[in-house]
Design a binder for these strands. Structure first.
Lengths: 190, 190
DNA sequence: CTTTAAAACGGACCGTCAGTCCGGATAGTA
DNA sequence: TACTATCCGGACTGACGGTCCGTTTTAAAG
């Protein structure tokens, strides 16, 4: 069963409104009342569509991450399947750095909204699975699960903000690339 | 001017009460009203002593971290000054793993209470400065600031909880040790 | 073009919680 | 004992996430 027309319209309006508000307010200071008002709908609609504050921000992040997700699952190498794992890893951390840089405020807001259960976020899980698999190939001896989480820790909202403030996107890209190389074992990659 | 006797007594009572409540409730579900009630004082006292929720949890963490802080600043090697940086690094991440394992709930609660400005926490800063200096010595070429944050990311509350649930403290210690070795450059350390 | 029922809507309402405020109590000093 | 700076308690406020239910809209069937 497909979503009713007004429902779909309101969903979009809410996502756009939340997005817009994120640019004008501190990450933790966007209330759902504000989002509803900005979208021109009632508050109940927010919860009917997204279930909770967490749900709203998860969906917002999922939207922004959709392109990367597709590219990494079925796009051309080196990001997509086909390239050796070391190259895929580097391509991925690099793309993720760009994504994070372009969405710092969303990431910060998402982080807080999902703080109660960060690892169950679908987007995070997807990234983690990807890294887990690649690291597992590159370093069968290491704790790939932990290392994947550690790499993703490099995209923490506040950390990204600081890196970009002092050093720009270039610094962030170099830093996560270097970390990935170290974590995965530079020998296997080079 | 020193703190009045009743003030000091209440400060201790509040810290003990918060500590105790942390063991019985989910990390985000300890309200300051509860803490005040459990300590047998009024709510106003909580704010007079600690300024805010954030302040309370910062002080609680500082208390638990005091011993490690002293050992790392002026204790015997390899944790304290005197040992080569690689050994100090390993000793530190190992001790921090133990500290984290013993205080999982506090760490999770602290994380949330301080989420608005995590890097300004005195304890976090102290740890970061220490790692920053050691990594800077071991890898003058790397982004020591970023790498120090990345290492500390390995002690995220939820991550620690998962590691210990599946693998115990031993797994956590091995994992952070391995990560530190990689980050610092295994050649310099071994 | 009706009819109709499921689906969606809005916004008042609720419970919780961090943080404030001030009249009253108390500790330490002279 | 008298005095004052300090501290105390807990009622109060404002904000926010989440719920509820009477009303409206959609869209499919007749």
């Amino acid at each position: 069963m497909t979503e009713r027309a007004d429902a779909a319209r309101n969903r979009q309006a809410l996502l756009r409104a939340a997005d817009a508000l994120l640019n004008d307010h501190a990450p933790g200071h966007v209330s759902l009342d504000q989002v509803a008002a900005a979208a021109g709908v009632g508050k109940g609609t927010v919860f009917r569509r997204f279930g909770s504050r967490t749900g709203l921000f998860r969906e917002l992040l999922a939207e922004r991450a959709a392109r990367l997700g597709a590219a990494m699952d079925s796009g051309p190498p080196p990001l997509g399947p086909g390239a050796p794992p070391g190259q895929r890893l580097l391509a991925f951390v690099d793309e993720l750095a760009l994504l994070a840089a372009e969405n710092i405020r969303l990431i910060a807001a998402h982080e807080r909204a999902c703080a109660a259960d960060p690892y169950s976020d679908p987007t995070y899980q997807r990234w983690h699975r990807h890294l887990h698999a690649l690291i597992g190939e590159l370093r069968p001896d290491g704790d790939a699960d932990f290392l994947a989480h550690a790499l993703l820790g490099g995209y923490d909202g506040e950390l990204v903000r600081r890196m970009i403030t002092a050093g720009g996107v270039a610094r962030l890209r170099l830093a996560v690339r270097d970390l990935a190389l170290r974590v995965a074992g530079v020998d296997h990659v080079a």
